[in-house]
Each structure stands twice: as C-alpha cells, then as structure tokens.
Design a protein around this nucleic acid. Structure first.
Length: 131
RNA sequence: CAGGCAAGCCGUUCUAUCGCUGUUCAUCUUAUGAAGAGAGGAAAGUCCGGGCAACACAGAGCAUUCUGCUUCCUAACGGGAAGGAUCCGGUUUGACCGGAGACGGAAAGUGCCACAGAAAAUAAACUACCACGCCGAUUAAUCGGUGUGGAAAAGGUGAAAAUGUGAGGUAAGAGCUCACGGUAGUAUAUGGCGACAUAUAUUGCGGUAAACCCCAGGAGUUGAAAGACCAAAUAGGCUAACGCACGUAGGGCUGCUCGUCCGAUGUUAGUGGGUAGGUCGUUAGAUCAUAUCAGCAAUGAUAUGGCUAGAUAAAUGAUAGAAAUACUGCUUCGGCGGUAACAGAACCCGGCUUACAGGCUUGCUUUUUUU
RNA sequence: UGCCCGAUAGUAUAAAGGUAGUACAACUGUUUUUGGUGCAGUUUGUCUAGGUUCGAAUCCUGGUCGGGCAA
C-alpha cells in the first residue's frame, strides 16, 4: 500500500522528545537516521518525521523540494523494506530522517541511499531485539 | 529592420501511473467510491497604514516620537493622481519637451563652520591704500623707515568671503547715494478652490534645521502564540459579598508630575491553573470579471454574473513521456545533447521596497537601408 | 509567526560631523652563539548601495548578515 497519511507521521511532542533524547542514530550520507523501538497508540508499524535544516538550506523552496522527495521515496519503499519485517516481529518504531547533505542531490541517488539506510535500520533493530 | 529608455501585462502546456489536504454526494458505516478544488506577482522583506481581538481609558501639564508645497482620491497611510515652485538635461529658443527629489520655518533663540586664510560672523586690520607727525636720503617733486588715525575697495586661501554690475562721491574708500539686476519678508491690487503667479510700494541681505529647536497636524498598549468555547483534571490562583483596619505599607491608571482609583489578614459563595488535546477565530471579501456612466487622472457609482487554497512540525508532490518557446554546447549543417527566472500561503486586506530567465503590447528615441 | 537590537584590522575594543586610534597577533630590523625577552619600525579595517552635507564610522533611507525575546 503506497500511502502516507496522518497516522504514519510523528506529530506528538512527547514522542519526539523521547525519540531525540533516548533514540539511537547512525549516519548514511546524505541522511542521519534516528530511531527508537517504542509502543504507541496508532495502528501502523512506524511513525516518521522528516526534517531539513534551515541552516543549510535558506530558501523554503529548496527545503520543500528535499522533504517532498524524501517523503515520496519513503512512501514507495517502506512496504518493501520495512513494514514486512516490523509486522512479523510485532514491533513499532519511531523514525527521524534528517537530511545533512550540502547540495540538493538528484532523485535516483537519494532513492538508492535511503534504501540502504532502511536496510541498515532493519539489521540494527533486529540485532538489538535479539539482545 | 535592429538597438536603447519608460509604462503596463504574462510568466510553459498536455497525458499516464502512484500519492497528499479540504469540500460535496453516495454507499452504509467509519472507511471506501465518485465528482470537483488546491501557492504568487512578488506568497519574500516586515518598511508604513487599516480591519479584527484583548486590556486600558474622569482629566490636565510636561516629556517622547512620527509626518511636513497645494488640491483631490482612499477605510486609512509615510501610498496614489493632478498641479505649483525649485534644480538638472535637451532644444526647432516656444517661459517648449523630458527627468529628479524628506519641498514648512535661518526675519524667535542657541550651537557649529576642521585645514588654509588678514578675516568664517557684534566683522577684523597682516600686506597693500590714504592723511598727518617724526627721522633719513634728495635742489625739489618724491622715495625709504617709524608712530597715530582713517577705511573696508585690491590680495594667494577656502565648500563658502559679507547681494552683483556700473556711475556718483571721497584724502582714500564704503548701499554712503543713485540706476539696473538677484534674492527674501511685508502690504495692496488682479488671476487661481489652493500651493502660487503677475504688477506696484516698502524693508532687508553668509551657510547649516537628514544640528538642537520653533510652527502645524497626528500617535493608548499588545498582537491570531490575540481571543472565545468544549471535555479530562483539580491547586498555593482569580472574582463577588460581608467583616477588620490609620483608608497605613504597597499597587494600578502611558514614561514623569499633579490628580484619581484599588488596597495586606478572616468567613461564605462562585470560578478553575500548569500540562496535553479538540472546535471556533479561518477565509464571501474596503472580493473578482465584464459592461455603462462621472472625472484630465488616481478613483467612484450602477447593472449582470462568479465563489476562487485553507494546511497546523504544516498538503498543493514524485516519476515517465510528448509538444511549444527561449538560451546554450557540439556539429559531418541533417541534427544531437543540456538548462528552464525569482521564488512557497500560515489571521486578513491596501500600499511601499527588494529579487526576477524569457515573452507580448503601447509610447518616445537613435542608427542604417529603401521609397 | 510576531517583535526588538547590532555590524570598526586576524581578535578584543575606542573615536563631539573634520588625518580612524589602543592592546594582543603577524611581518621586518636590532640586541644574543641560537631562541625567548627587550628596543625600533611596518602591514592589515568602518557590512553593502544610495542620499543630506564643503566633508559622513558617525545623520537619513533601502538591502545583506548575525544575535536576542515571546512558547
């Protein structure tokens, strides 16, 4: 299901604070991923927040473009890379995708990298789950 | 035809797949389906003005701050239109054409005007000038030195030199007097709604008010994170009445003064903070399009028709293909490739300012060619 | 989103509208066998574009950048 509606976005201030306070993170250029396995009320496997720094991209048009591309890539790829695993292991996860690149990359590169990032996230979370 | 300047307008289109946010209608029940809608001329900067909202507001004075030719437009403005005077450029020399600007007051007062220069503002006296005295030279006229007085015309400087030119006048000179001008104030007359213009009379004559200041007119404070409501939750807060008390300490009312109002603790009643969430505020309006009329114009009036984003960590997108236009690189001149201006609503309007690939229209202007 | 401030050498910080200083740093010379210290000197600046003024770091207007407050 290629959807991306309100349920799948992370809006609660409390959960955001918890995520950035106690979540673990890794770098995969041009992304910085922060994640935390945490139960929450909504009926979806993951809630995600996408952010682009105002310090690096001064213009609102550029920030909007990057955020929209990331959102689109996430929407198209989450069911293949993330959701089957999560629903199988009955996990719920909070996720923050932070763009830290200096220029606007093209769509193909961003897609490739985000796929890698999601795979790495799956490995890490399964490892911590076993422990 | 090409270039330049000014003003105004536009600022890619279509298809497919997968999505996002509202609206309406169905199913029939909390999710599907269908239909239809979904960024701008600047949404930007937050520089002015207004709406809206809460609080405050008996009032007086001072302080602070903004604006500054006139008339009009407007809800209002520091915006706009038309005009006036000034300055600049052009010119066919016609007070013609184009452009510019924070454009009240220096004759209310105070301050400032570095360096240079004799002197920078109650004029002054260095050189030079004139008169007289003394000394020296000399036949004498005269020349040199020196002292006293006169005068403000000549003098290198400076951004600026005491209103400019000419004549009279004088020992030498001086608006000292006169004529013609420049410029400013006042009075009268004429024209104009007015700024102002023209004429006459009269009085004056450094600059600087984006120096203090004076004059005229204005400015309450805070901003949708304003504010109203709902459910959960319940204090140490708040409100009202009564009581106590020196109406005291203290506090509010614009920064200050006067003035004025409230006023510590207790009892009763009511309300319900933080925190997290939802609804309203929130998009039908100083609205848009067309036509007619009024006006030089800004703009206004009337009629007909339309509804045109409403999100909330924040939607309006991604990918692929096609077409047109422009720019650009390579070219075997057949084409092939690349790029797509500035920029993203956050309560809403009216302006201003700034950014902007390219295209279109109108006006003015220059060069070349043709007739 | 709304509101309020600031910008001076590499760094910190002065300057009534009249030649932009001071300290540290950097560089050169000198003293020393060498280095340091000391001494003498030199270089480097008013965020940007206009305006007012004879003359702006300073006064006024636009822009750029940085910071702060309101939760």
């Amino acid at each position: 299901m290629y959807t991306f509606n309100k349920e799948e976005r992370l809006c609660s201030k409390k959960l955001l604070e918890k995520l950035f306070h106690s979540g673990s993170s890794f770098l995969l250029y041009p992304y910085r991923i922060v994640w935390l396995a945490e139960k929450f009320a909504a009926d979806v496997p993951a809630q995600v927040v996408i952010s682009v720094s105002k310090r690096k991209f001064k213009k609102a048009v550029e920030r909007n473009l990057i955020k929209r591309r990331i959102r689109e890539i996430y929407r198209l790829n989450k069911s293949e890379f993330l959701y089957p695993y999560l629903s199988k292991s009955e996990l719920q996860i909070l996720l923050a995708i932070n763009y830290i690149g200096k220029d606007i990359s093209d769509y193909a590169l961003m897609e490739k990298k985000l796929k890698l990032a999601l795979e790495q996230l799956r490995n890490l979370s399964s490892k911590s789950n076993e422990e």
